[in-house]
Amino acid sequence: MNYSISLVLFLCIVLDGVKSEHLNTRTHVRKTRRFHAGTSFNSHKITGSYKSSNDVAISEIYDPLLGVWNIIGSMAEEREAHAATILKSGKSSAGSMVTPRAYHTVTLLNSGKVLVTGGRTFNSIILPSCEIYDPDMDTWSLTGNMTVERTRHTAILLNSGKVLVTSDDSRSEVYDPITGKWNSLASMGPIPCYNSVGTLLSSGKVLLSGGMQLSKYSTSSEVYDPITNEWNPVGNLTIGRRFHSSILLNSGQVLVSGGVGDADYLSSCEIYNPLTGKWNSTSDMTESRSSHTTTLLSSGKILATGGYGGAGFLDSSEIYDPSAGTWTRSGKLAIARSYHTATVLISGKILIAGGET
């Protein structure tokens, strides 16, 4: 299955979370990748791979202590739009899934096992099936199917250890790793919303914001309460948006930044207060950006990197100070990019990998 894409990035950049004005080129990723996933766990290593018009089965691992990428062998099948993760044991996922799939989600469970949900096959069949990877046995096995087929959906690990999945049709469900079964939840808002962004709140509830409704940029927000298993509407965003970023601040509030709206690419930002259920505007970013990343630094400030704006792909980064409510420019990336990943390393530095330019 071929996808028409522009040049795909293969350069990795590390940003010092303390002296954020300097971005340093480190080591090249051995294979290009797009729409990949990067996650840091106890091993503090990251893996990933991709498939595009030049299909690749190779996986690789980044060691932040050495600052190098190493190929760790080939996957059983070439893949595109899949996800890879490092397990708590420090091993890398191996073996073949029961069903080849793309645009699925991957969630590390509290047990150390990995849950894969939904996605679609290479002949565009959308899947309800789910699988569990056991790193001790190095095996994949089927678990309970979701109640509906899903692709390009969202999966969030709840504080209970269960997994919440939402997608574009107002239907959501929760997976229980103990029983291996899914339970449907009450419907979300009356109008289906897609491309919403989810954030786990300090309370254990989940906030969904923005997206598209009836071909319009949505201002709606909803909160899922795992205790009552219900969705409840909360205050609307001040501006409808999609392809935005949402991140939990140390204060327990949520910062939403950028995206695309009626006014084209957005620089506007707003703060959600879970105590009042309302949104309030905060300072705009220094430039408009969508499909960017936001990362919580050890200082409590927020780093925004890259993305896509009115001038095209962005090589800029900026820092948000929650105490002052202001954004300031930071160093430039070596290469403009969007759809990349940003991962906090144990050193406090940030690894920027992949993307599109």
Results as ranks from 00 to 15, higher is better:
20 S>A: 10
325 G>A: 06
232 N>R: 14
170 S>L: 00
194 Y>V: 02
306 G>T: 05
216 K>M: 06
132 I>W: 09
118 G>S: 04
98 V>G: 04
187 S>H: 06
141 S>C: 03
276 T>C: 05
78 E>K: 10
137 M>Y: 03
343 T>L: 02
126 I>M: 07
123 N>V: 11
244 H>N: 13
63 D>I: 03
76 A>F: 02
124 S>E: 12
140 W>I: 10
33 R>P: 01
313 F>H: 08
313 F>A: 13
159 N>Y: 12
86 I>P: 01
214 L>E: 05
328 T>V: 13
343 T>G: 01
9 L>Q: 11
282 T>V: 15
212 M>H: 06
30 R>N: 12
50 Y>W: 10
276 T>K: 01
224 Y>V: 00
110 N>T: 09
12 C>H: 02
66 L>I: 13
153 H>D: 10
294 T>I: 14
238 T>I: 15
133 Y>T: 03
191 I>R: 10
296 L>E: 03
290 S>T: 01
39 T>W: 02
35 F>C: 06
235 G>F: 14
142 L>R: 15
147 T>G: 10
72 I>N: 01
257 S>D: 01
138 D>W: 04
73 G>D: 00
86 I>K: 02
215 S>H: 07
132 I>Q: 11
71 I>F: 00
246 S>W: 02
281 S>I: 15
32 T>P: 15
112 G>E: 08
232 N>W: 05
121 T>S: 15
249 L>T: 02
353 A>G: 07
34 R>S: 13
218 S>D: 04
106 V>T: 15
56 V>M: 07
78 E>R: 09
354 G>H: 05
43 S>P: 11
296 L>Y: 02
266 L>W: 08
314 L>G: 00
249 L>G: 05
303 L>Y: 05
348 G>F: 03
279 W>Q: 04
110 N>H: 07
288 S>P: 09
109 L>A: 10
32 T>I: 14
15 L>V: 12
207 L>I: 00
8 V>E: 08
320 Y>G: 08
288 S>D: 15
311 A>L: 10
181 K>G: 02
235 G>S: 09
195 N>F: 12
254 V>G: 08
333 L>V: 08
9 L>I: 09
187 S>E: 08
332 K>H: 12
64 P>A: 01
201 L>M: 13
294 T>H: 04
60 E>A: 06
320 Y>T: 14
137 M>H: 07
70 N>P: 01
76 A>T: 10
198 G>D: 07
206 V>I: 15
283 S>G: 12
89 S>H: 04
253 Q>H: 08
308 Y>W: 09
87 L>G: 05
166 T>W: 10
157 L>S: 14
27 T>Y: 09
341 T>C: 09
130 C>F: 13
144 G>M: 15
51 K>T: 14
256 V>N: 15
282 T>L: 07
154 T>I: 14
322 P>Q: 02
280 N>T: 15
254 V>E: 04
53 S>E: 03
264 D>E: 15
119 G>A: 10
111 S>C: 06
132 I>H: 07
152 R>Q: 11
123 N>E: 12
211 G>K: 03
3 Y>G: 13
205 K>V: 13
295 T>V: 07
243 F>C: 09
18 V>D: 01
64 P>M: 04
155 A>N: 08
138 D>G: 00
175 Y>D: 02
164 L>H: 13
250 N>W: 02
52 S>I: 06
85 T>V: 14
281 S>P: 00
267 S>P: 15
1 M>I: 01
43 S>D: 13
182 W>I: 00
204 G>V: 12
